[in-house]
Design a protein around this nucleic acid. Structure first.
Lengths: 207, 207
DNA sequence: GGAAGCATGTAAGATGTTACATGATTAC
DNA sequence: GTAATCATGTAACATCTTACATGCTTCC
């Protein structure tokens, strides 16, 4: 049992193993079909995590011989692994969500584009969100017939509600776009622009 | 003029400079008060980007001597920089949004916690989202008096709508939580769990 | 006298991605 | 025969974060 630093991705792995024992291969598939939506873990990360978690005594792999398929190593949570997972789950700090939304950058810099272009961008973003919402709805229906899936349903519902919000924002936003281009030339009137920045609330304390 | 690879963070910098010429210091402040909400760029990244963009001829720095304050280097967009920015803006590919939401991990693994705990987590997450929504509302009011800020308003509106959706999801979700703990033991019934994963739609094509 | 703001960076490392490598078996 | 699935990894590198370093000025 070695003391290692557990990151959120480690807990994602531990959590999945608390639902079913799995090989690295299965784990990656499971990630892509579950937590990958809101906490991506790449294939090589999965294997890297397992290679860290096992010597630390949090998971335990067992070689399984298969006929007709390659041998594999199936990992299960150890008691120490359960404790580590539960102690992380125990704190009700939600943890800071991280968002990276490239199309908002393009939206914010709309002053440099012909007005119609930004409307097109919003339409495209809205369409994608609507398609996503559809997927989530289907998934929810499917979960209705799965026993003990209440927490999964609530999680999927998050994706649905956010996707719906983005889709309806895209509609709402198109009506608010200016019809004429307003070009901002930073060499002519920098004062106004910097003042706008100063007026805006900062993401966090500035150091 | 050197050909360099521009990342999304580069365009964030170029875009801000298309609103006002600024020093690295000012740029970081501007990031934290604007694009940082949906595209974070750290202080050292800002300076690193400027050091890349200038030799490539996309921005041009000018030394400005100040009395009572340290000297600074103010950067402006060059014509090549404007072209690079506009050509990126020109494509209406929205770009793939990235989300990382730790509390959804904790929600999904609720089967390991006493039932009340997950409700507490949702309450905390909902409260934070509601507080955020309030901030966005204030910011929107402030922008009402700023001329030519239509694109900024639309961008802030996105944050507001998403925050509202998260807050109302947190309310809705609490009613859907199971009252009794259902423990899933991966050593007893792994079949059900893995089948659930298989039924779920994958984030993207699996390779 | 001390804290906070202005100003610019470096250095180290955390974290994660993509592509590559390998090889057997099964389904079409 | 060819593609896909199962299975496990390595190697290279892209990207970004945190903490540290420095020094002057203004405000309390």
């Amino acid at each position: 049992m070695v003391g290692i630093k557990l990151r959120t991705s480690s807990y994602a792995i531990l959590g999945l193993l608390s639902i079913a024992s799995m090989s690295g291969y299965d784990l990656f598939q499971a990630v892509e079909r579950s937590v990958g939506r809101f906490w991506p873990v790449s294939k090589s990360q999965v294997y890297a995590e397992l290679a860290r978690l096992e010597p630390a005594g949090l998971v335990q792999g067992t070689d399984v011989h298969q006929q007709g398929l390659p041998d594999k190593r199936v990992f299960r949570l150890t008691e120490a692994g359960e404790e580590a997972l539960d102690s992380w789950l125990g704190s009700s700090e939600p943890g800071e969500p991280q968002f990276r939304v490239p199309f908002l950058l393009k939206t914010l810099f709309g002053h440099r584009r012909p007005p119609g272009d930004t409307a097109g961008l919003l339409r495209a973003a809205g369409d994608e969100a609507a398609a996503q919402a559809g997927q989530y709805r289907e998934f929810l229906e499917l979960l209705d017939s799965v026993p003990d899936s209440a927490y999964a349903r609530v999680t999927v519902l998050f994706g649905l509600r956010v996707a719906e919000a983005v889709a309806s924002w895209a509609e709402e936003a198109q009506a608010l776009l200016p019809e004429r281009a307003h070009r901002i030339d930073p060499r002519r009137e920098p004062r106004l622009a910097t003042e706008m920045f100063r007026a805006a609330p900062a993401v966090r304390q500035l150091g």
